[in-house]
Design a binder for these strands. Structure first.
Lengths: 351, 351
DNA sequence: TGGGCACGCGTAAGCGCTTACATCCCAATG
DNA sequence: CATTGGGATGTAAGCGCTTACGCGTGCCCA
């Protein structure tokens, strides 16, 4: 613990011990240039004996690169961000890049952001609308390669497909005979939400219907619960609820059930993201599965390409997959009463 | 995008523009020492005009500190790690520290780890047993302050209480009249798991019973499913299953239900972590809630204290809370058949 | 046998900051 | 009026590494 050597070995110590110059040590350690294998071994030995570890800061300063990328997220609640992060980190590591993380849920972001920007070679940003002024972003882009996540307004954004899936999902509910649909989620809160509502509206337009206005609620369970209670108190409740994400959907579903509503019969409920919980509600939650991890991975590799190659990162849109379970009204191979045996896995029809 | 200036402003440019020396610029920018307010304003102006941003690497090199801490995790699956990360990042940010993240699920960790260690002032490590050789850790500790997470063998570990809660949970099942209990989880896979099994065993010992050997399965849903199928095929199945975490528990619960087993009547099931899904199974999953976010927060602040103060980080053990729902056999205010209205929130008795 | 050419390695010039120390100037003091 | 002290600023020495450049070998080929 406390036998931490006051001054860890430097490249000079290694060079001296190996009887070579620091340049040679440097060459050996990063594998550039040719070094006679005998010399290399001596250097490697010396480094090992001294437990040498090059200071990242010194390397970064001299080489003018950090070998690190940053990821800025608007919070880390829910499985969505965790998965995104996994994909990002994995891909970054494969490219030999460290990952610096910044969550800026509520905090004033200016100072931490600058700190982050000063220590990475590229940055992936996912931010809520209004969280980051366009000026800030422009200024960021002047410093380093930038990739935007799920920002429909940005040219080089990378995100999952929303509008078409939302339309298809909505049409699926129409197919179940549902006509009084509502979109539960605030389009103002995220570009993704806006696109999903657009798809919801498009499906209505396709049938000559007028979509109900979006229900402006947040992304958390509490938001879903709250709205469910409001629905329960209404004289003419909707017969279908297209939720902006699964958190809202499962909470809403749960609360409606507690209010005596039979999901899939009285009302159809759908979510978005296909989180773990969607598989465990009764009925299972029909949802839209996004390749979130892939999204993170793509962000990291895009950054790596830009950093390495210098090309501008292109936009990308990833495909989604509608996962049908019981909450939309589809039959489900599940024990409604668990006393009667019903073997076999959940039926998950994918389009 | 591509109007990225080839050479961003340095401290020299700012100094020149402000008509002062770089020392003064440095002093102004980090608020040390006294600088005449007129001078300060000139410097600040110049910096703003040039959009100056100090290179992190140069600062780190000169100041011999990175102002960053690292977090090493064995994967990021499930809500557990995400929450831990949130706590860690939040606290680190409050201390003015950047966060570098390293996930080392399967990868050979040597190289990325070294890269990480070279760029932070302190490191919090959570690793599976055997993932990190004791030598590695000792060597790490020689480089920088280290905090271990959920590593019962380490002196300065910080983790949540396990044994007592497991014992209490097990005794709760005894109270339901259960006698053929099994612990589903591999004590070899994590110190936490070992401690939980120890508590499970202690409860048995308290009643003069001999605990069944632990069922060595992993932490994932698939592990729970697999074991459930095995249980279903047995002549004399257990009447209580204490699972190492909620992922395993919910999957097992689901699979048993599909096999016709009535949870809470035929068998009691409990989990650990109190993840979101635990609230949505039917019956709800009885689980143990850990202050995971607090754990992350504690790790970060501990590191900060060590870095700043030089004191060795002390161990810490955080309290847990047993959350009773229906899966253990307790009555639950839930609609078994959702056609009959049953208002009111889930009853969650906490000890 | 000599010129050229790789190859292997050392020399030294930075990279952009922090900070100990020196310096300057002016107000306060005897 | 000379002296002194201290606040404001400049000077310069690093921090530990990368890398352009160049020198000295030994070897091949003419």
């Amino acid at each position: 613990m406390s036998d931490r050597t006051p001054r860890p070995a430097t490249i000079y110590a290694v060079a001296e011990r190996a009887g070579v110059s620091i340049a040679t040590v440097s060459r050996v350690l990063q594998g550039t240039n040719h070094v006679a294998s005998a010399t290399r071994d001596r250097v490697l030995d010396a480094a090992r004996q001294l437990d040498y570890l090059p200071r990242g800061s010194a390397r970064a300063l001299a080489a003018k690169k950090h070998e690190a990328v940053g990821l800025m997220l608007p919070g880390l609640s829910g499985p969505y961000f965790a998965d995104l992060l996994v994909g990002f980190e994995t891909a970054a590591a494969e490219c030999g890049l460290s990952v610096a993380l910044l969550m800026t849920d509520e905090r004033g972001l200016s100072s931490p952001l600058r700190q982050l920007v000063a220590r990475v070679d590229g940055l992936a940003v996912m931010a809520r609308p209004g969280q980051l002024a366009p000026d800030d972003l422009a200024s960021l882009g002047r410093w380093l390669p930038l990739v935007r996540l799920a920002a429909s307004d940005h040219p080089a954004t990378i995100h999952a497909e929303n509008t078409a899936s939302a339309r298809e999902l909505t049409e699926h509910l129409f197919g179940h005979g549902r006509r009084r649909l509502e979109f539960v989620g605030d389009p103002e809160l995220a570009p993704d939400a806006a696109e999903r509502y657009a798809g919801f509206a498009a499906a209505h337009a396709g049938l000559g219907l007028v979509p109900a206005p979006a229900v402006p609620v947040g992304f958390a369970e509490a938001d879903g619960r709250r709205y469910a209670r409001q629905v329960l108190s209404r004289a003419e409740p909707p017969d279908g609820l297209v939720c902006v994400n699964d958190e809202v959907a499962v909470a809403l579903l749960d609360e409606l059930q507690r209010g005596g509503v039979v999901i899939g019969r009285d009302v159809a409920v759908t979510g978005w993201d296909d989180i773990m919980t969607a598989r465990y509600t009764r009925p299972g939650l029909t949802s839209v599965s996004q390749p979130v991890r892939e999204l993170g991975r793509l962000a990291a590799t895009a950054l790596h390409d830009v950093i390495a190659g210098g090309s501008t990162p292109g936009p990308a849109v990833l495909p989604t997959r509608i996962v049908i379970r019981g909450s939309c009204g589809c039959p489900e191979a599940l024990p409604p009463d668990a006393t009667e045996p019903q073997p076999g896995p959940t039926k998950e029809e994918t389009k």
